[in-house]
Design a binder for these strands. Structure first.
Length: 447
RNA sequence: GGCCCUAUCGUCUAACGGUUAGGACGCCGGCUUUUCAAGCCGUUAAUCCGGGUUCGAUUCCCGGUAGGGUCACCA
């Protein structure tokens, strides 16, 4: 297979969103799969709208997502070359300087127009097959505002040729631009390119994802704690699949499996819920150390906190879909692992009081003994083994069943309606803390 | 509106012209260490419509419908 040299060509007029990113991903994957080149070219021909801030943010996001380009260019750096070819076209009379009546602010009195030969242009699209466009009603389209200010269509064609691009992989919204670009290309005697117009990605509103329609900047997903692996995996599967049953592929596996031939024709809707589940998958694959690093909780923490945090990692992996969510859990449903003053007397009493304070107290007291005789280093399994008999005994008696002892235990330890199961709590809290909390609960019940 | 593109469960998708139309995510239900989460099991749910071609169309062709894209001195 011939190596694919392609480019991702964002204009620095906004941040990257999932729509842009997906084009970048498919281009990147195509290039890497074939052993070719992935070029990033900043299309900043529109000086008025471009900004260095956006350019920086684009590269920053690309770096986060690990889509490193083999080469990068800035279109404005090619002005002299654009001018040279613009002059050539005018000299050949395939383009001409045209007097204009400005229609809008910023419009020039003179622009360069391409002589439209009329008729139709047909090209073979890798994804869609043959596409024919009628160019007659395009008229003599503008290719530059002046010799030093080429318009997108012109600059793209020239740059692609100069950079050795052989495949144009871009969003389907460019289909109608292709004909005029090919016209310029032919006039310049440049080599033909292969085109792959990707189906668009829609938002919930079933419209093309765009800044305007409120597509989130990718940086927001980063801040939310979405992993680059997850983003890549999810996006790659929007409009493509490997042809087998696999759903979770790493970067390397994606590069290996990717091919434009399996790209979907129809557009797809970006589904955050699915993204979340893909992210959870990748979070779980992280080592505990890496997980902790991604969690980014305060650098200065007590030894106790650090130790508890480490023990909480398996619980977080089990529960959280993002790192932001994990952080919330740390101060919410998992706070009982860190905070000493979690017992809420009102709740404890309210839940158990009306009928069976006595029973609850008894259950807690028997638990006390059982935990006392536990070894110092605890595993959830060992705790369960030691404490379950108490629950089973209760079960045999009927009435409240295991819940009659398990629920008070869990509640005495967590002080919360929702928490990890009681055995895990004992194991993570340790004997000393567990005993203290149960004592305290007994005290409250005794009042 | 002109031109162009597209059309399988709610969503992402699979299916050499022959399958009980499969999977994943979500939803719903059940089980489990009477919570939450996770896990396991299960249920629900789709070939847009109409014509062809064919022994046989999700699949090929045409028409319709619907959705989308594009019609800049933005990219």
């Amino acid at each position: 297979m011939t190596p694919i040299v392609t480019r991702f060509a964002p204009s620095p007029t906004g941040y990257l969103h999932a729509g842009n990113y997906r084009t970048a991903v498919f281009a990147y994957l195509s290039a890497k799969h074939s052993g070719g080149k992935f070029i990033v070219r900043i299309e900043d021909t529109d000086v008025a709208r471009s900004s260095p801030e956006y350019e920086a943010s684009i590269f920053e996001t690309l770096t986060w997502l690990k889509l490193s380009p083999d080469e990068t260019y800035r279109q404005s750096e090619h002005r002299p070359r654009h001018r040279e070819l613009l002059e050539k076209l005018v000299k050949d009379d395939t383009a001409y300087v045209s007097k204009e009546t400005p229609q809008a602010p910023g419009d020039r009195e003179e622009v360069i127009r391409f002589r439209n030969p009329g008729g139709t242009v047909t090209f073979m699209d890798i994804i869609h097959g043959e596409i024919t466009t009628d160019i007659t009603d395009l008229g003599d389209f503008i290719i530059a505002r002046s010799f030093d200010e080429p318009v997108f269509h012109f600059a793209v064609v020239v740059d692609d040729a100069d950079e050795g691009v052989n495949h144009v992989i871009r969003g389907g919204d460019h289909i109608s631009n292709t004909a005029r670009q090919m016209l310029i290309q032919q006039a310049l005697g440049l080599p033909m390119l292969l085109y792959a117009h990707l189906p668009l990605i829609f938002g919930d509103n079933h419209k093309k994802l765009s800044k305007r329609s409120g597509a989130k900047p990718l940086s927001e997903y980063r801040d939310q704690g979405i992993l680059p692996e997850a983003m890549l995996n999810y996006i790659a599967f929007l409009g493509w699949n490997p042809g087998d049953k696999r759903e979770y592929l790493s970067r390397e596996e994606l590069i290996e499996a990717f091919g434009l031939s399996r790209v979907q024709k129809g557009s797809a809707i970006f589904d955050e819920v699915k993204l979340l589940s893909v992210n959870q998958h990748w979070m779980r694959k992280l080592s505990d150390d890496d997980f902790l690093a991604h969690l980014k909780v305060g650098h200065r923490m007590s030894d106790f906190y650090a130790e508890q945090l480490r023990k909480a990692v398996p619980l977080l992996k089990e529960r959280a879909h993002t790192f932001a969510e994990a952080r919330e859990m740390l101060s919410g449903e998992l706070s009982c692992l860190f905070n000493e003053s979690i017992l809420d007397r009102a709740l404890l009493v309210a839940k158990e009081l009306p009928k069976r304070v006595g029973m609850t107290k008894l259950a807690l007291e028997s638990l006390l003994g059982a935990i006392q005789s536990l070894p110092e280093s605890l595993s959830t399994e060992a705790v369960k083994e030691a404490l379950m008999p108490l629950g089973n005994a209760e079960e045999a008696k009927g009435k409240g069943g295991r819940g009659a002892v398990l629920w008070p235990l869990r509640y005495a330890l967590s002080g919360q309606e929702r928490s990890p199961d009681p055995f895990t709590l004992v194991a993570i809290l340790g004997k000393e803390v567990a005993l203290a909390r149960i004592q305290k609960a007994i005290g409250i019940l005794g009042e």
